[in-house]
Write a protein that binds this DNA or RNA. Structure first.
Length: 505
DNA sequence: GTACCTTTGAAGTCC
DNA sequence: GGACTTCAAAGGTAC
């Protein structure tokens, strides 16, 4: 992370970037463009902060209106408690001290007391929390909302209150704080990229843009069943999939319904619903539509009255019941069902192989943050083009600005390592090789690349096309400018003008 | 339905 | 150790 070592001014990064385009002989234009880009960045940053602040204000007003009844709180609450557990495990002091001065993403001015005397989150803390974890509803930090949480939880029957549901007098601030800090919830990505919790989790910040409530909050009703869908879970951060161990930490969203054989039974889910294990037709349909098959509790083909109802018989059950109708004895039926269950379990286990994604690198984090901005500015939708713009804007960033993302990426990697100690990027190589989902990228022939290709003249920044992709970015990024003796030969040899500029910088 | 495109960076593999 | 490959995100496009 050279940018961290340099400690230079803003011009360092700018020079660094400028060199790539000097060949075009449009230095003046470039300077103005850099200024423009920096203004853009400043706008972005300020707008992000303002949005965060504004969103707090606006969302706090509208929160009460939009907030679903206590039922949704139980989802949130359930996860919150399980995450507190995860937080205690994860807490390696990642966020205890600001490692990089001036780094707005990591630094929390006062972690030990992010709340104001009235119990609400301080604006700074809220801004941080919303920027870091846009899915987090920081307004729950208020006394009222926390009290509401408590109130919503309190009616829960004691028998369904599990280990996650211990009530600690006066715990609210600390535990909530812990939760918020640990909100990078690991989320297993299902092999089909549909995690069981996916209906409750989103990777996209846009889904939670305040003032633009997602469709599911606007009377989200399953068109098939007419049953309102549960709200997406806003507390779960999108960054990481769950580790296999962490899966058990996150309660199954339907765990309270049916204790399935061989699966952990979640005991800590507090909910306003009765604990009856019966799943009626509507619920079955709802569950089937919202969750993978293996997560949907078995349907007993019985109406609430106990009388089989043809409308609520799933095809599988139909088939099974037809077997029973032709005179098979009960032990044979049981054996058949058992075999089928075993087979389906094996298949499910294959499918359930958790796909732990790589931690995002600095540029990826930057892209995630800036993509929407670029899309809005340029009215572009094609990601390839957007990424080109983002790539150039990335180079236009100052060293300090880039350092934010490098530091954030470093934190992400640390957290990832803590969450998945045994994970290796190689695992994902193997996963794709097995699934053969992706073909190997077509090797670019010499001259086929875009080094001399004006693939996408940037309509937004009016920047010259990228003509030199051979800039020594890897070694520069890896070792930094002050350790050029560690650079590989090609990186040292390439673009001497840039190197000289970098050295000068 | 899915690979590709496009970006940078991290990490893996291969020689 | 260097070169090369893969995969992270994203969503339109092409097949």
């Amino acid at each position: 992370m050279p940018q961290l070592n340099g400690g230079g001014g803003d011009d360092l990064g700018a020079n660094d970037e400028m060199i790539s385009f000097k060949d075009e002989g449009e230095q003046e234009e470039k300077i103005s463009e850099n200024l423009s880009a920096e203004r853009d960045l400043a706008d972005v940053k300020s707008s992000l902060v303002n949005e965060s602040e504004t969103n707090q204000n606006s969302s706090s007003d509208s929160e009460a209106e939009r907030r679903p009844p206590p039922r949704s709180e139980t989802f949130r609450d359930k996860t919150r408690e399980s995450l507190e557990e995860a937080a205690k495990r994860q807490d390696g002091g990642l966020f205890k001290s600001p490692p990089y001065p001036g780094y707005p993403f990591i630094m929390i001015p006062d972690l030990t007391s992010p709340y104001l005397p009235n119990g609400s989150l301080s604006p700074t803390a809220r801004t941080y929390l919303q920027m870091k974890w846009p899915l987090l509803d920081v307004n729950h930090g208020s006394l009222q909302s926390r009290q509401a949480l408590k109130d919503a939880r309190s009616p829960s029957p004691a028998h369904i209150v599990g280990p996650f549901c211990l009530e600690f007098p006066g715990q609210s601030d600390l535990s909530l704080h812990q939760f918020q800090l640990s909100n990078k919830v690991p989320v297993v990505q299902h092999p089909h990229h549909v995690h069981p919790l996916t209906p409750l989790i989103t990777y996209s910040n846009e889904h939670f843009t305040p003032g633009n409530p997602p469709p599911h909050l606007q009377g989200d009703v399953d068109p098939k069943t007419g049953i309102p869908r549960p709200p997406q879970h806003p507390d779960i951060s999108p960054y990481y999939p769950l580790s296999p161990g962490a899966v058990g930490q996150i309660p199954h969203p339907l765990g309270w319904l049916v204790p399935q054989q061989g699966q952990p039974v979640y005991q800590g889910f507090r909910h306003p619903y009765p604990t009856a294990l019966t799943v009626n037709a509507s619920m079955q349909s709802f569950l089937s539509s919202r969750f993978p098959h293996h997560m949907v509790p078995p349907h007993h083909s019985l109406h609430q009255t106990g009388i089989p109802h043809p409308a609520i018989v799933t095809p599988n059950v139909k088939q099974e019941s037809s077997h029973s109708d032709i005179g098979l004895n009960s032990s044979t039926i049981l054996y058949t069902l058992h075999r089928k269950h075993q087979d389906s379990k094996k298949e499910d286990e294959k499918k359930k192989q958790p796909h732990i994604k790589k931690p995002l690198n600095a540029f990826m984090l930057y892209m995630k943050e800036m993509r929407a901005k670029v899309v809005a500015e340029c009215t572009l939708k094609e990601s390839a083009a957007i990424n080109q713009i983002l790539g150039r804007r990335w180079h236009a960033l100052t060293r300090e600005e880039q350092a934010k993302y490098y530091e954030l990426a470093r934190k992400e990697r640390q957290l990832h390592m803590q969450l998945y100690p045994g994970w290796s990027a190689r695992d994902n190589y193997a996963a794709n090789q097995q699934g053969k989902k992706k073909k190997r990228k077509r090797d670019k022939q010499p001259g086929e690349g875009n080094e001399h290709r004006e693939y996408f003249p940037n309509p937004c920044l009016s920047l010259p096309p990228i003509t030199d992709l051979s800039a020594p970015k890897k070694c520069r990024a890896r070792f930094g400018l002050d350790q050029q003796n560690n650079w590989c030969g090609p990186c040292r040899r390439k673009c001497p003008k840039e190197v000289s500029c970098l050295v000068r910088a």
